[in-house]
């Protein structure tokens, strides 16, 4: 079947089967390889992307069921530069393989979270619990999310 997908603001028509997973469309058909496959079972979060603004795992999503706009790490616009920099400045990544998924999960949090929540470390850890990182011990990721620059970003993008 042929489906229409809007990814990072661009419309695509792709031919898929009923079993095709969104991660394969993104990576193999659209060449958006920033989204990583870590487990193909929804257990590690490396493939986290946004669909209609909600974080979902592309590896356990059937492509033909996707109706809303898809946003991947390649589609994180300039507003999110402070988030990317915070990951770099606070040790939020080492090998970088889980990083696109971490960033997309974080981007969703910033869009939906009241500011005071972002200083609650225990809550942040719970929210990030679906994203496995084997390198950092999570310390740097949490530091990045609690940094002043990321708070400023959340403030600027706070839901009305």
């Amino acid at each position: 079947m042929i489906i229409r997908l809007t990814v990072n603001g661009r419309q695509h028509e792709v031919e898929i089967s009923a079993a095709t997973r969104l991660i394969d469309v993104l990576r193999d058909q659209l060449g958006l390889t920033g989204t990583k496959q870590g487990c193909r079972a929804g257990e590690c979060g490396a493939c986290t992307i946004l669909v209609g603004g909600q974080p979902i795992q592309a590896c356990i999503t059937l492509a033909s069921r996707v109706r809303d706009e898809v946003r991947t790490v390649e589609g994180l616009d300039d507003r999110f530069i402070p988030l990317r920099q915070a990951f770099a400045d606070h040790g939020g990544f080492q090998c970088g393989f889980c990083t696109p998924g971490q960033l997309m999960r974080a981007a969703a949090l910033l869009a939906e979270t009241p500011l005071e929540r972002l200083s609650d470390e225990a809550w942040l850890r719970e929210q990030m619990n679906g994203n496995v990182c084997r390198c950092t011990g999570y310390c740097g990721i949490i530091r990045a999310l609690m940094s002043e620059d990321v708070r400023a970003l959340a403030r600027d993008n706070a839901p009305e």
Binding site: E74, R84, A88, F93
Partner: peptide, 12 residues
């Protein structure tokens, strides 16, 4: 910063 920080955080 890690010298690859841009590529790692923009997915490239």
């Amino acid at each position: 910063r890690h010298v690859d920080w841009q590529a790692i955080t923009d997915g490239s």
